[in-house]
Write a protein that binds this DNA or RNA. Structure first.
Lengths: 148, 148
DNA sequence: ACCATATAGTCAACCTACTTGACTATTCTG
DNA sequence: CAGAATAGTCAAGTAGGTTGACTATATGGT
């Protein structure tokens, strides 16, 4: 693999990721959820499991806990999440999704499925599964990095 | 493809893209080019062709021309680019890479090639080529979107 | 040829998402 | 049970973008 080919692959990967992000965002907005930005998606994904503390979220997003706290403020203000007392630790607070937060999560899933369905039409259904498997093997673990 | 599978694919794609971005950035820094951020890569790629005006760059990056101008200011200040008079349009200025800018571009190519080489070791060389071809087919065209 | 309009670029002010630093309240530990 | 660590917040500063206003040059219709 030559350098220019590596750059072509890199550019394609970044373009595909950017396009997917935008398509999901547009789909979420089209389903009536305004004021939510792509970067929020990573927070929704973490909260959807069984809630998280602000510190959990900060580690997951790779930002400071102050930044995570502001993000939660915003999500609470817009009705997507709420702070509940943490069972078993009076210092912490458990941030969980509201019903609207769940609905927004489902909207994002639908939008993603729509895009992936289009990919299936282009590549073939089986190839999409292969693509997913390959990407999982080269994707690093650790905190997500919402911004470049 | 079910919703959860679409989300798994989306997450893998975004994680792979984020990881690649970070690895390239680390490789560039390791080769002695400091003060350059991942978002600059898209500007380098556009300037590497045969230079560009600030407005060209703004369109390519999907930002305002004021933001593109600030980006060019920064690249000039750090020695990666320079503004030259535009042949044939006295309003415009042609932004081109300096020798240091070219060296940084080559460093990014090397870093990308290094990561892609690792992918080849994991997936097999042939599979990387297939991956590139698949990604090219699902990647949208149009301006890049450096930030989510 | 000329004036109206469009385009390239910049300056200034502002906005947003993040940072660092300082602090309180609670929990863990030796 | 005192000292250190942890969860969270408040406040101030920073970086990278935005919108709006402006100048200089180019383009096109009459």
């Amino acid at each position: 693999m030559q350098h220019s080919e590596a750059m072509a692959l890199s550019a394609a990967l970044l373009a595909a990721a950017g396009g997917l992000t935008q398509r999901i965002h547009e789909g979420v907005v089209a389903r009536g959820f305004e004021g939510v930005r792509p970067a929020h998606g990573f927070a929704f994904a973490r909260l959807a499991r069984d809630g998280a503390t602000v510190t959990d979220l900060a580690v997951h997003l790779g930002v400071t806990k102050q930044a995570a706290s502001q993000l939660v403020d915003e999500m609470v203000r817009k009705g997507y999440a709420e702070r509940r007392p943490h069972p078993g630790d009076a210092r912490a607070r458990l941030v969980v999704l509201t019903e609207r937060g769940w609905a927004c999560t489902r909207a994002a899933e639908e939008a993603a499925a729509e895009v992936v369905r289009e990919w299936g039409a282009v590549l073939g259904e089986g190839e999409v599964g292969v693509l997913r498997e390959r990407l999982l093997r080269i994707a690093p673990q650790g905190p997500v990095r919402p911004s470049w």
